[in-house]
Amino acid sequence: MKGSLKMINCQRKSEKEESNSYHVTHKLPPGDSPYVRAKHVQLVEKDPDTAIVLFWKAINAGDRVDSALKDMAVVMKQQDRAEEAIEAINSFRHYCSKQAQESLDNVLIDLYKKCGKLEEQIELLKQKLRMIYQGEAFNGKPTKTARSHGRKFQVTVKQETCRILGNLGWAYMQQKNFAAAEVVYRKAQQIDPDANKACNLCLCLINHARYVEARSVLEDVLQGKILGSDDPKSRNRAKELMKELEPSQHAVSSSSSPGRLSFEDAFVEGLDQLMNQWTLVRSRRLPIFEEITPYRDQLAS
């Protein structure tokens, strides 16, 4: 009898270990809730349409709504249903926790980009900058844990600011608003210079016939003075841009102003003050941006 009980316990233990191993291998949460079933269909059965239906059931059942809404939107995007994903997030995000809102915003930005909704993308990126300015980014913490290709890593508010500025500059470039894009990229380079943003800044300068400045930016990349200069893709891009400048080798850069910035773009100019307030000393409010009085009303409007 004792031997039989021992055998049963060993079998149960083995089944439990096998189940845990299965969930770890397929990166599935444990259990058998609607959300877990949706993840199984998404990751194991690889049936996105059914997964979307099950994610909806998880949301309606109140089962891990934060994750269910985000994961469903990502799958919808992969299925070229970005418009539906945008509507879903905007309709159901109020059911999600405060901690999930920032992550949902990141998904929403990608969806706006896929749909070509530049105005919405720009407004949301500027909203995220306001949150950093107001000390509300990362839910009040100086860093957050991010994932890439299944690996976790820490992101600082400084790095996040530079990432957002890069996305904002690119969105302005898609609008052909090179004046605003130049301002944004210059701020990003002040925070954390990198070769890719330097090339984008160069494009802005070329569009305003400021060839000498553009050449100077590219030389910094080609001489390895900027982070990422050793990346083959960035170096090749810098070389191609330098070739485009060769016909203008003796041209004089335009001394004219790139144009008056509109009220919308004046928001970006406020980053001058923002940079002056950068500090490495963490306050109890958070981190990085304290009083920026001249621009408070603009940012709040």
Score class of each variant (00 low, 15 high):
G31H: 01
L241W: 05
V221P: 03
R93Q: 13
E246N: 00
R237M: 05
D265Y: 01
P193S: 14
Q174E: 12
L203C: 13
S248G: 00
L43R: 05
I292K: 05
K187A: 02
K98A: 09
R130E: 03
S21D: 14
I86G: 10
E240Y: 00
L203R: 14
M7Y: 00
K39T: 09
I86L: 13
M1Q: 08
K144N: 04
R237A: 00
E264C: 01
E119N: 15
S257V: 04
M72D: 08
Y112K: 15
N90Q: 12
A68S: 15
S283I: 06
L108N: 11
N276M: 15
R64L: 05
A181I: 01
N196R: 09
V41Q: 12
I288Q: 04
Y172Q: 09
D230W: 02
V252I: 12
K197C: 01
T25L: 15
R147A: 09
R64Q: 15
L271Y: 04
A100V: 02
Q42I: 00
R37N: 13
L168P: 13
D192Y: 06
I89E: 09
G3A: 09
V281H: 10
L261Q: 11
K141R: 03
Q11M: 03
P294I: 03
L218E: 01
L205A: 06
Y35Q: 08
G62L: 05
E83T: 13
C199A: 09
V252K: 11
L241I: 04
D32Y: 04
Q223N: 13
L227I: 01
K243Q: 00
P34Y: 07
Q277L: 13
A238T: 01
Q249L: 09
W278D: 06
V268L: 14
W56V: 10
Y22L: 13
A68W: 07
P29A: 05
P48M: 06
R296H: 06
E182C: 03
L261E: 08
G150W: 07
F55L: 11
P29N: 08
F55D: 03
P142T: 09
N20A: 14
C115W: 07
L274C: 10
E102F: 09
A188H: 06
R284M: 12
A266M: 12
